[in-house]
Design a protein around this nucleic acid. Structure first.
Lengths: 190, 190
DNA sequence: TTTTCACGATAACATTTGTTATTAAATTTT
DNA sequence: AAAATTTAATAACAAATGTTATCGTGAAAA
């Protein structure tokens, strides 16, 4: 589970064991809430198996804004970094296995390995890539029709279309589930 | 113009003068292109006076995706950082005064002051904030109606509504200029 | 097994948004 | 000043999308 990170940073074995001992394995059923809207995020989750959606409430309807799958880290990064109430809820879609770590442990680890220039660069690069991702999402939202965004999702993120219930995808695309269903049947006819 | 940065990082006078000498002042009319779509960004611009929009072409129509005003830095950060062709064009809206710096000079300066922990943290924090901004834009795009987004713009970024021609704002909101005009007249009646 | 419940498809109708065209005012250029 | 260009408003119609309701299927719970 953690080898992907180890090989990237060349951390000595002793330290490495100390770090991975901070993680706790957790097996949970579908629809388990890992972080609630309004709660300040104190844990970071790493997905071993399963899938998680992040959503927020808007006038009684929930709007899904992110999906996470195997090997991805999940939290409300805004809540986690700034110690403020989370604007979103994180919840499993499938029965899942996750590893979680306390914020204070992760902060300490980051503080320690921050001194490794190699790590620092990877860290900064990761944040930049996240920014570029969200820029893309925003640009797509103002440029493309819902139909184009759905086709794009099939192409770029097939996992989502295959594993996630359709009404979650609909709100992620900014349309109703009725309309997404309509778009699908229209596309099937062509 | 540069004092806002100097006070933030406590850099000694000699170095400071070396740094600001890398910047070139430029007075330009409205509709001047500073970076073209497809071109690899080699300059970063800092706005002393005026305003700049960033846009991309979509099937012959241009879609504005960002606005910049006084004291803000402009480039395609993706092109600038990754040395790839810019997905966007940057162009003045008003007659403007900008300061520009060569990428190689800026890279060298950043490399030097990166060693100052204080700077490093501000740098990392700035990227995070950019990410949060784009997350907000994306969330708003899938959650809010164009009308809500327009009202939000008036509230959160009044400069845009006051200084930018309406058809640029329309594409930024993801609607046609006809429709934005319609929304405005509807709001005026209430 | 039986009973809920979650999920998705579809229809009918309402509302929003896009398209195209026209006009007028404001601004810039000549 | 005159001409050209840019910008915004409006109307009429078309297309996209939302809303509400109904139905069927399959999965989960009792």
């Amino acid at each position: 589970m953690f080898d992907q990170f180890k090989s990237r940073f060349r951390i000595d074995n002793h330290k490495w064991n100390e770090y991975i001992n901070c993680f706790n394995r957790l097996e949970i059923p579908a629809k388990t809430v890992l972080l609630s809207e309004g709660e300040t995020s104190k844990k970071m989750f790493l997905i071993e198996k399963g899938c998680i959606r992040v959503w927020f409430n808007n006038n009684g309807k929930d709007i899904t804004c992110q999906f996470f799958f195997e090997d991805e880290m999940v939290s409300s990064i805004e809540s986690f970094r700034k110690n403020i109430p989370s604007p979103v809820t994180a919840e499993t879609i499938e029965p899942s296995t996750v590893w979680w770590i306390h914020k204070k442990d992760l902060d300490r680890i980051i503080e320690e390995i921050k001194e490794i220039p190699r790590f620092r660069d990877v860290f900064i690069n990761t944040i930049f890539e996240r920014t570029f991702d969200y820029m893309k999402y925003f640009f797509s939202a103002i440029r493309d029709t819902p139909c184009q965004r759905y086709l794009n999702l099939i192409k770029e993120r097939p996992q989502i279309v295959k594993r996630v219930p359709q009404h979650y995808i609909a709100s992620y695309l900014g349309v109703t589930s009725v309309h997404l269903s309509r778009l699908k049947s229209k596309l099937a006819k062509q």
